[in-house]
Every structure is written in structure tokens, then in C-alpha cells.
Write a protein that binds this DNA or RNA. Sequence first.
DNA 1: GCCGTTTTCGGCCCGACTGTTTTCAGTCG
Length: 572
Amino acid sequence: MTVHNADIAAQFNRMADLLEIEGANPFRVRAYRRAAATIEDLPTSVAAMVEAGADLDELPGIGPDLAGKIREICATGHSAALEQVETRTPASLAGLMAMPGLGPKRVQVLHERLGIETIEDLAKAARAGKLRELPRFGTALEAKLLAEIEKGGPVAQRFKISTAEDFAAGLTEYLKSHPGTGQVVVAGSFRRRKETVGDLDILVTARSGKATIDHFVAYDEVEQIVAQGTTRATVILKAGLQVDLRVVPARSYGAALHYFTGSKAHNIAVRKIAQAKGLKLNEYGIFRGSAYVGGRTEEEVFAVADLPYIEPEIREDRGEIEAAAAGKLPQLVTLADIKGDLHVHTKDSDGKSTLKEMAEAATVLGYSYLAITDHSQYATIAHGLDAERLAAQLDQIDRLNEQLEGIVLLKSCEVDILPDGTLDLPDSILKRLDLTVCAVHSRFELDIETQTGRIVRAMDNRHCNIIAHPTGRLIGEREAYAVDLERVMLAAKERGCFIEVNGHPSRLDLDDVHCRAAKQMGLKLAISTDAHSTIGLSAMRFGVDQARRGWIEPGDVLNARPWSELKRLLAR
DNA sequence: GCCGTTTTCGGCCCGACTGTTTTCAGTCG
């Protein structure tokens, strides 16, 4: 039995939900949620830690009690304490809390007074007009819940960062067009550049909140106005994306930007520091008593806590505050550091653009090299290259390089890792390449041992340089295949191989947590786009964002180096 | 349930909006 970190986190989150419904000590509830978040963010397997006899108390928010529950879940798959709670409070009630308008108190009332346990029970009671009779329920809430259920219930839809960018751009422009509007900035997880966002949090400075909000809710993409006051409003766009707007005065801009950028855990940690210094920090500024003492810029907010500016991408309370206090913040990699792209396709396999077009587009981006990595023969559907066609392409690249100025095309290939872990092309052709990118595109269903062994075996081939999109996941479409990434990364480090951060917004593979793990083990990464056209080259920014979330610095990145230096690193 | 420059007990972040209330609880972020 494999117990995943997500399984443990799910049990702790359910425990928190059910205890909250029971009216337990809110700080106890918070302790379960905090522990769940800690475990979810952990790049190593908690089950493996338990097996190795590691001290779980070392993890933040995990004390003796929760450490015991973790060990129990790892050993048995479940927690007796949770089962105990579920005998009193059905687990399905946790699902009811996902309904907008229902929190722990109302769910408790529904359960106690009407015996409601499921969404179906809730629908029945709402249709019978029974909800309106309950304390602190009314006809408005009853109708709202029923409408939500008939719409298909709560779907915690998340949007890819690239999709969110589309909506954010249009909205930002629209808001800026309103007279009297000052700054307009999208905060929240969007600003922290998470791979997906659940909603957009937009912050605006303006003289009149009401005028700004009236303008906001009149946006032609608005489907529904969820809430509308004088300083904030919430709407749902026709595409289903929720957008929250907050209006603050200019002197609160920095404090509000910090507050609404989050993450929540980061904010709490900073606020605690301010509080310890006798100051109050909220979205309106920094206050001593009731006197405003700052908050116009984010720098002022951090200064209150004696901290330097912390980049939004790492504000997750994963050690950034301690690093800032110690003057050890990473100098995060930026798009400007990137010297070339190491994973792109052309018309020769399944791309849309020619070699020359790709080279020219890369030149425009200021790159000094571009690795051409068309698919190998196994990928028949992608018109993959066999040794003969690849040889012809290599000759063509040689000829093209003689004409090109300011950029060099690197001879490469995205070679399939076959089910047995061998590579899809013979060494006789691979040895002609400047570098070889290897990837899994088949047999995703293999068990974790076999899949991991397959990838490690591929790296045993001395021509293998970079493992592309190491988990194969497609965000919102396909789960990662079962693979022990830690073992893959360690094997890569031992063999002088590297791992890719695929910048395609549907992949972003490695994820942020494993980028950080790679850095900690001294494994360098390639940030690549997997572009299938000249337009695809622009996805580099998403890869860089993901790497930044993983604390990656230019020195950790293969393609932040000039080709002469990169070439030496690739020799194995 | 965790945690400690307030250290083994007593705290634990804070404000806006809604609906239902007639001064505020519940929810949300």
C-alpha cells in the first residue's frame, strides 16, 4: 500500500472540516489544516520518511499528536480519530461546506435540524421550502443554494495561468479606462504565478470606490454579480472565472497589494512579526494604535518586519521569511537570464514552423542558441524521425548555421524512452547530436517501480542529457504517471543528466516543489518551451515563473549559460 | 493541536459583505 502525501493531507483536511462543523476549538481546526498544507507542499514522501524513522516533529505544524496520526495513516491507510469523528458527523457533510453560502455553522444546523447529509438531501429540503425556516437562513439563501445545485453543484474549477492571463489583460485594460482610476494590478495567486488560479483578485486605487465598482460590474463579460459593496465586489465571468475587485486609497496601495497577493500563510507570518513590534498590519496600512505609519508600498510593509522585499512567487511561507531575515533570499532567475531554448519542434516532426522560421523567431527573442528537438521514430503519430531522416536534418542544420548570424542551432532530438528504458534511436546517430533530450510518451500506466526504473535506465545511456516533462502530466487533463521523482532526480545528478522544467502552460513539469528539491540536491534544470511553432517560444515566461516559485537562480539553469559553458556541462 | 525573545500555559490575523437582524452572526478571502 502506498500512502501519498495527498492522502494524508486529505484526511487532515476532512478532520478539520468535520471538527469545525462540530464546533471544535477553531485553533485545533487550524492546526489540522496547517499540517495538511505542510504535507501537501513537501517534496518528499512522508510515508518514506516514516519508514526511514525520520523525526516528523521537525515538520512545521506537526507535533507529537499529528506525527502519531501520520504514522498511523502510513501504516493502516486510515486514522482511528477521523473514523471516530465520522461516527458522529458524517463525512459527506464536509462536501456540503463546498457550497457557496454554507460554512460549518449552517451545515451543523442543516444536519441537526433537518438531518441533511448530502447535496441531494439539501436539494430536497430546499425545494420543499424548509430551509427558510431555519435560523439565519432565509428565502434568498434557499433560492441561491437551489440554483447552485441545479447548475451542477460546486465545481472548484481552476484556470491555467495562461488562460487567466487572457482574462486579466482584458479586465485590467477595461478598469484602467475608467476616469479617476489609479493603479490597477492583479494580485492573488495570479501574481504569485501559480500554475493554476481559482479566481482573479484585482486591486485598484481610486478616489471613489462606488464609481469604480459600478464600472467593474458593468463589464460586458460579467455573467453574475455575487457581491457588490463600496470597497469590494465579486463577479463571475461568462467563462466561469470568479473575479474579486478591491478598491483602496493610494496610501494603502502597498499594504493592500501585499495583503491580496498572499499567500495567506505568508501574510499571517509577516503580520505576526509586525504585531510583535506593537504594530497592526491590515490591507489599509501599517498602524501604531490607530495612527497610520505606512503602507504606500510593499517595501514599507516588509520594512516593518525588518525584511527586504520578497518576490511574490516565493511568498508561500516555505522559508522565505526566515531567508529574508537572514539576508539569504535567492536572486531568482528572470526571463532576461535565458540564453536559449533547449526543446522545440519543427515541421520535420509535428511542429508548424520550419527550421529557419524557428531560428529567426529565436533571434528576435535575443537567444544565442536554439536546440532543435523533433520527435524520434517511435512517435509515429507525430511523424517522428528515424535515423536517416534525423541525419538529413542534422546536415540541413549545419548548412543553415553557416548562414545564420547571432544564433546557433543545436543539433538535438526528443528521443522516446521505450517501455524497456532503451532509447528510440541508435547511439551511432545520437553521438552526432550536441545534446539529447529524452522523454516518456507511452505506457503511462506502468507501476511506479517499473516507470521509475525505465527512466533511470534511459539515463544510463551516456548520450542522454535531459529528461523532458518528467511526470507527463497535463494540467486539468491528465494526471502524472506514477514515478518516483526523487529517485529520478538523484539518478540524474549521479549520472550528470539534467531535468527539464517544461514551460508549456499545460505542463509546467517539473512543478515548483520539485524545482526546489532539485536545487537542494544540486541538480541543474533546463527551462524549455516544447514549442511546436514560433509562437510557442513565448511560453518561456511560464517556465521561468514556475522555476522562480521553486527558488531557482540563474546558476541553477542550464540555458542561462552561454553555449560554450553549457557544452562543457553536457559532456559525460 | 501547535508553539515558545510573552516558553509548558495561554495564546493563536483581520476586515467586508450578506442576510437577517434591529446590533450581529456567518461566511469569505
